[in-house]
């Protein structure tokens, strides 16, 4: 099962290396990773999505907690949370497909952020399944390249309420 783990760490040199080193050293998998300072600039939030059975996840969380610079570990699985990721994607846009690409972009509420005679570059924000749906639809038209930011998550303020998005 896929888990998004949110790790609050001290914002210091070398801390990310401890977190990532723990995953590689113990054979845990990192699917995506995102890191940035938080509201309190002395702390950073590392968000890791990973997969594994219950026992592996339990070890990951305990081992993360054991790192001296780690302040808090939250596994979002089982909680109500919002999840976002951004993709920037360059799509082939020849004469006959230019309109089609724009139509798809509109349906997904993606933005055109660069344009050339033969391509569009689009950006889209959403959860993992939305991004993957977008990639799937654009694949037959011809994807030239894409980059993804990695997932960020935040717990909902009101746990257990109906999802808004």
């Amino acid at each position: 099962m896929r888990h998004a783990i949110s790790v609050l760490v001290e914002n210091q040199a070398g801390v990310l290396s401890r977190v990532v080193g723990l995953f590689s050293g113990r054979g845990f998998n990192i699917e995506s990773l995102s890191v940035a300072p938080t509201l309190d600039p002395s702390k950073s939030k590392v968000i890791i999505t990973t997969t594994g059975n219950e026992q592996v996840l339990e070890q990951i969380k305990k081992q993360l907690n054991k790192l001296i610079n780690v302040i808090k570990v939250v596994d979002c699985a089982g909680k109500d949370y919002v999840e976002r990721e951004m993709i920037v994607i360059k799509v082939k846009a020849e004469q006959e497909t230019r309109a089609e690409v724009l139509r798809i972009a509109e349906i997904f509420r993606a933005k055109v952020i660069d344009i050339s005679p033969n391509s569009y570059t689009l950006s889209l924000t959403g959860d993992k399944s939305k991004l993957e749906g977008f990639i799937e639809i654009l694949t037959p038209i011809g994807i030239l390249d894409f980059v993804r930011t990695g997932t960020v998550v935040m717990e909902r303020e009101m746990q257990g309420r109906r999802k808004l998005s």
Binding site: G14, S17, R18, G21
Partner: peptide
């Protein structure tokens, strides 16, 4: 040495 010993110390400092 901080990089080298990260996985074999409880913690380390520069």
């Amino acid at each position: 040495i901080v990089g080298i010993t990260r996985p074999c110390t409880k913690h380390n400092y520069l």
